[in-house]
Amino acid sequence: MSHSEHEAPIHRTSPRRMGKMLAIIIGIQIVGGLLFFSHYDFWNSYLPIAGKLQEQGAITGGAAQGQATGKTVNVSLKFIESPDFKTYAFNALSGQDRNPEIHANVGDKIIFDVTNSGKSFHAFAVTDSKEGPGPAIEGTTVGTADNPMKPGAKGQATFVPAKAGEYYYICAVPGHREMGMEGKIEVSEASSAGATSGATVTPTGNKVEFSLSFVMSTDFKEYAFNALPGQPGHNPDIKVKSGDTVTIHIKNDSKSFHSFGVVTDPDNPTNVLWNSAFKSPDNPMKPGESGDVTFVAGAPGTYHYICTVPGHATMGMDAKFIVE
């Protein structure tokens, strides 16, 4: 259809209308700009809740710093490179001094004195990841990959391991770890806590049997195994050898509900070791009920056999389970 069929004249865009449109657009932009700049600090003012929770430790991602309770270990490290920039390392390019291995216990305070003695940019970090440039444990970094240590720069970082295991001190600049800037930190449990790793072991076939019963005082204030406190046979120590197949005959001689388990930490009854749980707090033994549980005792150490119903262990149903 062509334009000639229309009788009315064509009204074309006029400067006035163009001006109106520009005024609307520019007006919106000015109002928006005023809003934006007058509240400049507001727009980026808070961390998301997930980030806040993480900072408070409600969500823990990976390894974290622990409480310093042990000795202080001083380590001095230098970033060095071979002249052809093909080999990177800490302290020495080869030999014993290269990437020295650090041994420490949980709670020890390891202080790193870091110097960039190379010609390139580096960043120091401690991580528990076995490969790649991180993630770094908070507070253990000197420089970052984005803002690295320049040649000659020095810094200090502190690392207090919270858990036993293998950690690594590395250069956090991507690629440098792979080229050799990586050293191991072996962290073992502090000696006072005993070597209660809770690890499972292969059964030796040796079988041992024990009998236990849950007992309670008539006023429901004292809880114990076999006999009330002060009476003979109260909370007997159970001694077994690592790898023994242990069978325990359990009887509930009390008027309340109970369940059985071997744990490392009686304050944390949910973490029952070696499938040693008999019943559970959700589905406990009723008064008078009895049963057997059979499990293989794991790594040597001093453990606890407890009533896993929350609160019962602290009220007395907590005795030693020693694995030799």
């Binding site: 507001f42 727009w43 980026n44 003012s45 808070y46 961390l47 998301p48 997930a50 980030g51 993480q54």
Partner: peptide
């Protein structure tokens, strides 16, 4: 999700 500051993000 854990670091980008609000309310911008």
């Amino acid at each position: 999700i854990i670091r980008a500051p609000g309310p911008a993000a």
